[in-house]
Write a protein that binds this DNA or RNA. Structure first.
Lengths: 145, 145
DNA sequence: GACGATAGTACGAGACTCTGACTTAATGGT
DNA sequence: ACCATTAAGTCAGAGTCTCGTACTATCGTC
């Protein structure tokens, strides 16, 4: 795995890690210091109308148990709540709570900041190109979309 | 953090995860089933002439203790060895052992396969463009290169 | 109503990561 | 040379993350 300084996996990981670092650093600075990366990776997949645990697990690439464990903590910290799913008595929907929405708002701002910096580095046209390529690539790689 | 289906962090994470999944699946299938992702992320940073633990920790974004823990396991499994650093009596160099080199060879092949698939999806020109953009972006994001 | 599939939970084990404290060796100033 | 400071690495402990196995409750179909 080493050697090749241009390993595509590493090339993707480096900026991913950078943006995640920034988001969590600034989230913590803004008082959202009780959320972890693992929690964030699940939280991130919650849809606008809430999501089922199984769906979050599938999209996040973890087991139901792990997703449940993380959602328990998100719930205890006030970022999400669980409500019954009206369409299925077995299921519950994980929905974003006010504190969660506030964290989302902050995160969106940080991501926008990072994007601006990257755009400054790459140039507007190439930055747009990067986003477009990654979006396209998602179709070929996100089996859990 | 959720909502925005075009969140740049997620767009980077999805293909990263996909390629990592593939590498570890095929590594396991090829008999390298005693290496974990965390170990791989450190292993990946070992330079051609070996690397110091502290350097691996820094580049991988983990503490020295964590890197040491992971290298202990890589060493026990025969992927790396530790040799004294001739230039510093305190340090040792983590170098790739034969079994590690074999795993590297296999990984390189898998990554090449994935790249071919992505190129088929994106087209040759755009795939090249993606690699080039990520390489450029690395300069702005990999503080530990 | 009975049956296989699905949503979710409970429990326990293993893997990962960190903080704090420590040992040993190198470096720089005197 | 000597001492203070810095750097490389280890040790011990706790907290977090993840999974496999096993379970209950509900759904959908017959």
């Amino acid at each position: 795995m080493p050697d090749d300084a241009l390993n595509l996996g590493l090339l993707l990981f480096i900026p991913y890690r950078a943006i995640e670092d920034r988001v969590f650093d600034e989230l913590a600075a803004a008082g959202f210091d009780d959320i972890s990366r693992a929690q964030g990776r699940v939280f991130q997949r919650i849809g606008p109308n809430g999501s089922r645990l199984t769906e979050l697990a599938r999209q996040s690439g973890v087991t139901k148990q792990t997703a449940g464990f993380l959602v328990d903590q998100l719930e205890a910290a006030g970022y999400v709540t669980r409500v019954p799913d009206p369409s299925d008595g077995r299921a519950r929907l994980v929905v974003i709570a006010p504190r969660g929405a506030a964290a989302v708002a902050r995160s969106v701002g940080v991501v926008a900041d990072v994007e601006r910096e990257w755009t400054a580095h790459l140039g507007a046209e190439r930055a747009e190109s990067l986003r477009e390529l990654l979006t396209d690539l998602r179709a070929a790689t996100d089996h859990y979309a």
